[in-house]
């Protein structure tokens, strides 16, 4: 019988934690796929919605200097490898493929623990993460002229000249070291988890 009342309120937090972890993981994934990671993550996501909504002339106006963005096709190997590791340690694909609607929060919470613990282990084992800003969130910070726009995103009332003063909403994350396992030649990375047959 699962009268685990104490775990009820925590499950939503856990669930959101997982979602947050996932977005981080995919962010990290983009970083691993290209050598100059931060640039490609900057250029890729804005590209697709922008082209759908309205033709954006912005990249072409200061044309003389920057060349049009060179798009690179990320090698799927590292992405598949990370999925394999997440499935292995965190049952990630199993979890995402579940239909949550018919289960109680207690059940989801129990499974979320597996996913959370495993994802955390994977993340800590293969990536060294660092917050981009050391200040506390929800405090006022000042950005001097020439700050790195890849590292800090300005939002809201973006007008005027640097230095900019504003509230730190999210401290940001950066991967400072990646130690992914090496893949043996001839290994089929598209198999994220083999089927298991017990004899």
């Amino acid at each position: 019988m699962n009268f685990d009342l104490s775990s009820l309120p925590t499950t939503f937090d856990m669930f959101h934690l997982i979602l947050a972890a996932l977005s981080l993981i995919f962010f990290a994934l983009f970083l691993t796929n290209s050598k100059n990671g931060p640039e490609s993550t900057q250029t890729q996501p804005p590209q697709s919605p922008a082209s759908k909504l309205k033709p954006e002339p912005a990249p072409e106006q200061p044309a003389p200097q920057p060349t049009p963005a060179q798009l690179k096709v990320a090698s799927p190997d590292a992405a598949l490898q990370l999925l394999t590791l997440l499935q292995q340690d965190a049952r990630f694909i199993d979890f995402i493929n579940e239909d949550l609607s018919s289960f109680s929060d207690a059940d989801i919470g129990a499974a979320a623990r597996v996913v959370h613990e495993g994802s955390k282990k994977t993340l800590n084992t293969y990536f060294t993460l660092e917050a981009l800003r050391s200040e506390d969130e929800e405090t006022r910070i000042s950005l001097p002229a020439g700050f790195n726009a890849s590292e800090v995103r300005l939002t809201g009332n973006v007008v005027g000249e640097a230095p900019f003063t504003g509230t730190l909403i999210h401290k940001g994350w950066k991967v400072i070291d990646i130690k992914l396992p090496k893949i043996a030649e001839g290994h089929d990375v598209s198999i994220l988890a083999p089927a298991e047959v017990e004899l």
Binding site: S7, R91, F95, A110
Partner: peptide
């Protein structure tokens, strides 16, 4: 908390807690 997931691909409802 110790959670032991099932061996199959169905995680929910089968996790031992």
């Amino acid at each position: 908390a110790i959670s032991i997931p099932s061996r199959g691909s169905k995680l929910l409802g089968n996790t031992l807690r």
